[in-house]
Design a protein around this nucleic acid. Structure first.
Lengths: 168, 168
DNA sequence: ATTTATTTTCAGTAATTTTTGAAACTTCAA
DNA sequence: TTGAAGTTTCAAAAATTACTGAAAATAAAT
């Protein structure tokens, strides 16, 4: 397979993959393009590379920066801004985990706390089933919270090596 | 908080949570409703409980069954079908992991294999960056594949206990 | 200060996804 | 068999989400 073709394929697939995970297609594609670009590139490069509008490009780059996956770069002597993605895929995963944890898991745990102490007699099976379900989810959530925290802080090799050892 | 209110809150939040993970709101809400229902319930119960149409209900129940999260139940003497959800939240997670792995990770790994042997000179930095990116993702993907397989097969306690021990 | 290059915003439009509801289909009891 | 109860399908409508492009804002050069 030729490089041009392979790049296209990767960008397109990465975009489709993203949509299955609640990430918008364009954002995932910009990320893919940056991942395989050896040097920093401009908004115009991205617009041209993916055939998308300036506004769309700008909004999604900003979002990628918010997620901590892309950095703005100022090159000396250049007027335009350039962009570059973190290439170490393990760091990328940790960053995504960190953000999703903050945005989703933490609020969910807060909610579960409130729901857990619902009024009512535990002998009522409606109450019992509700409380048991919430407690079960909360227990799992707390475990995930702890585990992910350690994962986020961990050094790449430490974590991977641990997994390999444990799960072999 | 009253039970009715708490149930509403849970269903609504579970739905919102789902949309962040590429799961449609209604499907997540039906799942939530089934999780907190002590006894099997019918399509009509769900329609009424969530204020949604028959078609929508039917399609999303079917999808939940495809995901292995909900079962059809025939009650003796009843004409209608009833539905029930797996309540053990750890089993639920394992089932979701299993399905997403099959639907998403496996195809992604297949793609990466193809992309990895792109034509061209490795001294060309475009080729090098591309191949390095793909290889990096593949390495991570293979590791995830292995780990998740073991997790899927694992007994609940075995796994949770392991995690607790390892990550404390 | 003025011009020029670049970035950002956002109202309107387009594309996609979800939902509805009625018709078609199936199942079962009499 | 017939028909009543229940389930499934799917074309059209509604809702949501994403994208465009031009105008406004910002920044840099002259």
């Amino acid at each position: 397979m030729k490089l041009i073709e392979a790049k296209q394929q990767f960008i397109s697939s990465w975009g489709a993959f993203g949509t299955h995970w609640g990430i918008n297609r364009t954002m995932a594609q910009i990320h893919a393009l940056l991942l395989i670009s050896p040097d920093p590139i401009t908004q115009d490069d991205i617009m041209e590379g993916l055939n998308i509008s300036r506004g769309n490009t700008n909004m999604n780059i900003r979002e990628l920066i918010n997620w901590g996956l892309v950095d703005r770069v100022i090159l000396p002597g250049e007027r335009k801004e350039f962009f570059i993605a973190e290439k170490d895929i393990w760091k990328v995963v940790r960053q995504i985990v960190k953000e999703r944890k903050k945005r989703e898991l933490d609020p969910m745990l807060k909610l579960l706390d409130q729901l857990e102490d619902v009024e009512g007699d535990k002998r009522d099976k409606n109450v019992k089933t509700f409380v048991d379900t919430i407690s079960g989810i909360k227990r799992l959530g707390l475990q995930a919270d702890k585990t992910l925290d350690i994962m986020i802080k961990a050094e790449e090799n430490w974590f991977v090596n641990n997994l390999i050892k444990i799960f072999k």
